[in-house]
Amino acid sequence: MTTLEFTLVVFLISAVAGFLGALTGLGGGVVVTPALTLLLGVDLRYAIGASLVSVIATSSGAAAAYVREGYSNIRIGMFLEVATTPGALIGAFLATRTPTSALAVIFGLMLLQAAWQSSRQDPDEAANAAPDILATRLKFDSSYPTSGGQRPYHVGRVKTGFGLMFGAGAISGLLGIGSGALKVIAMDQAMRIPFKVSTTTSNFMIGVTAAASAGVYLSRGYIEPGLTMPVMLGVLSGSILGARLLIVARTRVLRWVFGVVVGLMALEMIFSGIRGRI
């Protein structure tokens, strides 16, 4: 392929990835990296570098739409970033010392988990957490807009959530993804934050987490301008469209559809990694 053809193909793939990633709150990186390595045979390290940078665009570009709707919670996000950013730095250092075949298998396992998670949960009506002393002191409790007006929520199990977030940050730095799936688990499942607040706050945090490992990726030469250009522009265009749709979309159907697509990609990544083809 010529540079022009290659750039256009990469742009299209990235736009679809960004669209799906923003709709589900899982981030475009989880789709764009396997797509580039499996479909186009791009080296995993280049794909990871391009994906990480575009994850920042996804997060920041969509955050504007979410914040205006009043879903994301800046205080919860900032506090949990204390855990995700050091995690991301450590993950990025580990990434430069791990063979790509092993990274591919870890990537696939993480994808499987994300797929399983996104097709499984019940949306929103999850029981609210009991008031938690730490959450109250940190001013986490807030409310979010629903069809029936503002609905207040409490936040629980702050320490568990914080620990899970460190792991989410490390996975983000290791694989060059936003690791939105793990962030959503920490908030939605452990801390009992309403699903829409969890996905949007996760989206909001992803950019900051990714910026922490981006410095390491840049100085290690993982960020290749010719490849990252169409990935970043594609993921950004797709994510802006996806974020517009999120406000009206039904989360259960979305999770199921995304779960199947991501599950298939996951198996292919694991298989290719074990066979040493990545």
Binding site: M1, T2, T3, Y46, R220, G221, Y222, G226
Partner: peptide, 16 residues
């Protein structure tokens, strides 16, 4: 400038 040149990014060489 380089649109017509071949490209693949199949083999990793750190960016300059």
């Amino acid at each position: 400038a380089h649109g017509a040149e071949p490209v693949a990014y199949r083999k990793f060489q750190p960016a300059e």
